[in-house]
Amino acid sequence: MSEQEALWIQKALQGDDHAFGNLVEEYQKPVFSLCYRMLGNSKDAEDAAQESFIRAYRYLKKYDTNRSFATWLLSIAAHYCIDQTRKRRLTTVSTDSLPAEIISDRNAPNPEREYRQQEKEVLIQNLVDELSPTDRAAIIMRYWHECSEVEISQALDLTVSAVKSRLYRARQALAKSYLELEKSKPLNERRAHESPAF
């Protein structure tokens, strides 16, 4: 944590909203990104990220300055998103309702590249969505936020061995789901991705 961040936290603890606003400005992207990967769409991600920052502001007194502030924030966001995902399981979510960001932009400079990028986006989101909420949070923190297993264990209130086991299970599930998706694709679509030598 930088000196500037420590100062903002100190000021925020004294009731300075603008100091905490600076922290929101600084960490909005990682928190939003985690919420987006957990929930799969911008609207829910925005609400979750906003709520996470409100909770962080409320519980700032409980923040242990020996821990990374970023990990602490991600922990709050991850717990909130896990709860939301569990609540959401009660309602049916259609996989056809793709997030607005991944709908093809025809005015993009390279539409084909853009399309491939969006295809990857949909693919990875579908794969991640199949994981249990806690496994999903662990994988997102590990690969999108480059958190260590220790940091993940602190953030998700798990033991390090539990995190290792969850990550192992999640990697296995991701690979198997990817394989199933590839096998279910029509042959000509699969060929388009293969090397011309075959």
Binding site: Q28, K29, F32, S33, Y36, R37, S42, A45, E46, A49, E101, Q117, K120, E121, I124, W144
Partner: peptide, 8 residues
């Protein structure tokens, strides 16, 4: 390779 989503 996927893009990092950003808030509006």
């Amino acid at each position: 390779t996927v893009k990092t989503p950003e808030p509006s």
